[in-house]
Simulated assay, not measured.
Amino acid sequence: MMPVSLSKYLREKRVSVAMTQQQAGKMLGYEKSQFLSNLERGTSKPPLEVLKRMCEVYKISREEMRARYVEDVVREAESKALQRWST
């Protein structure tokens, strides 16, 4: 079974604490929910400082968030390397 992407993981964690994108965005210091929407759709990558703040807002341990972040970065790097190798 393939691990859940970081973007989907972030959405699941937000939903698990019963927050809308608007509510979570405001707690993270953003006026509009577009920022979180982009992160949760995977169209942009979250800055590390935002991931650290999400730990508090979403009630996630830093260790769990770090593990998910590293897993996502490794998976993305592996995918890019395999694509380059195939060309």
Rank of each mutant, 00 (worst) to 15 (best):
E78P: 04
V50P: 00
T20Y: 10
T20N: 06
L82W: 08
D72G: 08
R66D: 09
P46K: 01
G29I: 08
K52Y: 11
S16E: 15
K32M: 08
L6C: 06
A18W: 06
K80Y: 05
S44D: 11
V15Q: 12
L82F: 08
E76D: 14
Q22V: 13
L51K: 02
E40C: 02
S5R: 11
A67T: 09
L48Y: 06
Y69R: 06
K26N: 11
K59H: 14
N38K: 15
G42Y: 02
S61T: 04
Q21A: 07
A18I: 05
N38G: 07
N38F: 05
F35T: 09
F35W: 08
L28Y: 12
K13Y: 04
M27Y: 09
E40A: 08
L82A: 14
E76H: 08
A24C: 10
S33I: 02
T43G: 12
A77I: 07
M27F: 06
C55I: 00
K80E: 13
K80S: 09
E56K: 00
Y30H: 15
E31P: 03
K80G: 01
A18P: 00
S7D: 11
V15R: 12
V4G: 02
Q34T: 15
L6R: 04
Q21R: 15
S7H: 14
E40F: 00
R11F: 11
S37E: 01
S61F: 01
L6E: 04
N38M: 13
E76M: 06
C55G: 01
R75P: 01
E71A: 13
R84V: 05
T43W: 03
R75K: 13
L82C: 06
Q83W: 04
L36D: 01
L28H: 11
A67F: 05
P3D: 10
V17S: 00
E64R: 10
E76T: 12
M19I: 05
V73L: 15
Y30K: 10
L39A: 03
F35G: 01
K52W: 11
W85V: 04
R62P: 08
S37H: 04
L6H: 02
T20D: 04
Q22H: 10
V70W: 06
K13M: 15
N38V: 00
M65L: 08
T20G: 07
R68P: 03
R11E: 11
P47F: 05
L36K: 02
V15T: 12
L39C: 07
A67M: 08
P46D: 01
K59G: 03
F35M: 00
C55E: 03
Q34D: 12
N38C: 05
C55W: 02
E71K: 05
Q23T: 10
R53M: 13
V73G: 07
T87C: 06
V73I: 12
I60Q: 07
M1Q: 10
R11P: 01
V74A: 13
W85H: 07
K80V: 12
Y58W: 03
K52I: 15
I60W: 01
F35Y: 14
L6K: 00
E12R: 09
S61K: 02
V70M: 14
C55T: 01
S86D: 12
M2N: 14
E63L: 04
S79K: 14
T87K: 13
S33R: 14
M19D: 08
P3H: 07
V15S: 07
V70A: 12
M1Y: 03
R84N: 11
E49L: 09
L82M: 13
V74H: 10
V70L: 13
R68C: 05
L28F: 13
Y9P: 04
R68N: 10
D72V: 01
